[in-house]
């Protein structure tokens, strides 16, 4: 197992290098003069040139790249003009909010999608199969920001069941002592039921929004791979040996069907991390996504770059974990490593 982890870690190295090169290129090579931007609209050409040399933008690209990587290794992603803080600090402070939202959305989606997909495959052609098809098509068709707004209108404005879509806690609740940064976990650790309920109330709508969005690919893949596996020869063997329905579907079919689903999780995370930005904007959620959107509006480049890079590295790590999970399920991969 250790060897497998080592082997997988090795395969992520080219991805990380690629990610760093692309984020570097996005800021340094493409049009848009960073120096002119830093100098402000009223600056004279001389002032711009001065800033350029101060930022090292007049050096050859490879040299710039080396200093970029050096800064990166020290965790330096530059300064945010809007907050006046180092970008790294800003991101670290806001990341738990995004993580809590994304995880809640994903867990919710899986809790619905897996049983739905399995049932749809097992009872092919039944009402649950049709429901599954509707969910799968409707889910991918709903723009995630639109779903969020609809939910807000119905549950906040019309029904008044949920609090105002303004962040992680309403103004009267106090933040729990920071341990993980995830309010639900921290409030439980602090045995603070009230904060927990308040945080949960705020989390439900955005999490549901994300879940609706990521429901579709998981359901679709679960159903499809379950159908494929149910038609496989080894399931026929299991049936012909008289194994009970539960055993055939649970032990034989489901575990095999999970392999493509686990692979799909990579794509789902890609969707989730992107959709997160939109959902955070709709719900004024103080995560890294809304941080990036604010920076975009203010044309503040360092935070955007830092955000893109952080998300990419995070995504690479998530994919690594998915790979390892795959290895746990599939012995063929395990022994190959």
């Amino acid at each position: 197992m250790l060897r497998l982890i080592g082997a997988r870690l090795m395969t992520t190295i080219p991805s990380v290098i690629g990610v760093i090169i692309v984020t570097f290129l996005l800021t340094r090579v493409l049009p848009g003069d960073t120096a002119a931007y830093f100098a402000g609209p009223a600056a004279s050409p001389e002032a711009i040139a001065q800033i350029r040399s101060k930022l090292g933008l007049d050096l050859p690209l490879p040299v710039q790249f080396v200093s970029y990587v050096k800064a990166l290794v020290q965790g330096d992603l530059g300064q945010s003009l809007t907050t006046g803080q180092p970008v790294t600090a800003d991101l670290a402070q806001r990341l738990p909010a995004s993580a809590e939202l994304t995880l809640a959305g994903l867990l919710l989606a899986m809790a619905v999608a897996l049983p739905l997909g399995v049932l749809a495959a097992v009872k092919q052609g039944s009402w649950i199969d049709h429901l599954c098809r509707v969910v799968a098509t409707a889910g991918v068709s709903l723009p995630v920001f639109f779903t969020g707004l609809l939910l807000v209108y119905v549950f906040y404005f019309l029904l008044g069941w949920s609090p105002a879509p303004l962040g992680r806690l309403d103004v009267f609740a106090s933040e729990p002592a920071r341990v993980t940064g995830l309010y639900l976990v921290d409030s439980l650790l602090a045995r603070d039921g009230e904060t927990f309920r308040a945080a949960l109330a705020q989390l439900i709508l955005p999490a549901v929004t994300l879940a609706i969005f990521s429901l579709a690919p998981i359901t679709r893949m679960t159903r499809a791979s379950m159908l494929a596996v149910l038609g496989a020869d080894f399931v026929r063997t299991a049936r012909a040996s008289g194994l009970s329905g539960g055993k055939v579907i649970g032990t034989y079919a489901f575990r095999n069907a999970m392999l493509p689903v686990v692979t799909t999780l990579g794509m789902v995370f890609s969707f989730l991390l992107g959709a997160n930005v939109l959902v955070e904007k709709v719900f004024a959620w103080p995560g890294v996504g809304s941080y990036a959107v604010e920076a975009l509006i203010a044309s503040d480049y360092a935070p955007i770059q830092g955000f893109v890079l952080t998300m990419a590295i995070l995504y690479v790590v998530l994919n690594l974990m998915i790979d390892l999970l795959y290895g746990v399920i599939d012995p063929r991969v395990r022994l190959e490593g």
């Binding site: 020869d233 080894f234 063997t237 012909a240 034989y252 575990r255 392999l259 012995p331 063929r332």
Partner: peptide, 15 residues
Amino acid sequence: SMIFQNPRAALNPIR
């Protein structure tokens, strides 16, 4: 009992 052609496919690959 039954046995099938293509024995490799007839066995659960991950058990």
